[in-house]
């Protein structure tokens, strides 16, 4: 009997709540969109909502920025999701988010999708990541690897099976390759920088979307070689040995000043120009490209040169839409790309 009574109460409650939800949702919805666009205070402290989504590589940067910003502006509700660069752009094109994080420049079909919905965007680089090529610590024969050697290993029809196949001076130890899966922005950038064309890579390697798996793989395999973002190397220095690429080892300095080339890559935010009309979004971007840049290293990435942040802020204030990074080649200086004409 008691069960029945509670079941009955339960369903009554359900009816009540669903009723409330229906009645409440429409006016609430209307009022919230109203407040978002117009009556946020224009003083020092701002209020409102900012939604971000996109690449899981950019996620930690966005999160660190959001955390620092909302400490000073507790009335701003911020949320960051990580549904991948492509997933983020889909939501961006649907107008559901204010800022899309991307580990690669926007693609043609994504620009098309934005145009269809009348969405324009400002492209800003937010941080550098240095793709690190790592081997097992027991590997004592290689310190430095050239781009040509990397290409020989990773090109689509590569016949490399042992280290000796790459360079006759190295031993005939079998080479075991570890890398990110083909949906990853890291994969796109590495293949473009090394093999010359995006997504062109040999496919017989251990792929994982989780970089921690790659770390475990390389650290447990004497002949292993893998690549992933610098943060994953930095946190696992004791288990991995990083290779110099063309004579330069990745470090915050070499990635930041552009000497670690061609494997240092910029990470992006794409900002909806309509969102730029809202004071909280303006305030957030001003913080992120100004005082907030120190949070970049906290998230495990490398800050851009101060000049680049200044240029990016100018793009925000002048609402310079379009992309300049799409046509850029790996290794170009970031300031030069920012100064280039946008398409």
């Amino acid at each position: 009997m008691k069960i029945l009574r509670s079941l009955a109460a339960f369903s009554l409650l359900a009816v009540m709540i669903s009723g409330c939800g229906n009645n409440g949702s429409t006016p609430e919805n209307a009022s919230s969109t109203g407040s978002e666009t117009s009556n946020a205070p224009s003083g020092e402290k701002v209020a409102g909502k900012i939604s971000m989504d996109g690449s899981s590589t950019v996620g930690p940067v966005s999160e660190a920025m959001a955390e620092a910003f909302t400490q000073a502006n507790p009335d701003v509700q911020m949320d960051v999701a990580v549904s991948g660069t492509g997933g983020g752009f889909k939501k961006f094109a649907a107008g559901e988010i204010d800022i899309a994080g991307a580990s690669r420049p926007i693609e043609d079909k994504e620009i098309e999708a934005c145009k269809e919905k009348g969405i324009e965007f400002v492209e800003i680089p937010i941080a550098f990541d240095g793709l690190s090529v790592v081997v097992n610590p027991q590997n004592d024969w290689v310190e430095d690897i050239t781009v040509a050697e990397l290409k020989k290993i990773w090109e689509p029809k590569s016949t490399v099976k042992t280290w000796k196949d790459v360079n006759p001076a190295w031993p005939a130890e079998p080479i075991k390759l570890y890398g990110p899966g083909t949906d990853s922005g890291t994969f796109d950038y590495f293949t473009k920088a090394i093999n010359g064309k995006e997504k062109e890579s040999r496919s017989d390697y251990q792929a994982s979307e989780d970089d921690n798996t790659l770390v475990t793989g390389v650290s447990g395999d004497k002949g292993g070689l893998g690549y992933f973002g610098y943060a994953y190397y930095e946190q696992n220095k004791d288990k991995l040995k990083v290779l110099k690429v063309a004579g330069v080892a990745p470090s915050p300095e070499s990635i930041g000043d552009g000497t670690y080339t061609p494997l240092s890559r910029p990470l992006f935010w794409y900002v909806n120009t309509k969102s730029l009309d809202r004071p909280e979004v303006q305030a957030f971007l001003k913080f992120a490209l100004g005082d907030g840049t120190k949070n970049v290293s906290e998230a495990g990435y490398i800050s851009l040169p101060a000049e680049a942040y200044k240029l990016a802020m100018e793009h925000i204030t002048s609402k310079k839409t379009g992309t300049a990074f799409k046509g850029a080649q790996p290794g170009m200086k970031i300031e030069d790309i920012l100064k280039a004409e946008k398409k």
Binding site: G21, S25, E28, N29, S32, S51, D53, G59, S62, E63, A66, E67, T70, P74, V76, Q77, M78, D79, V80, A81, V82, S83, K91, E96
Partner: peptide, 14 residues
């Protein structure tokens, strides 16, 4: 589209 970083606790169903 549930998020991973969020600085507020859900207050209502929206």
């Amino acid at each position: 589209g549930a998020v991973t970083y969020i600085n507020f606790v859900p207050k209502d169903v929206k």
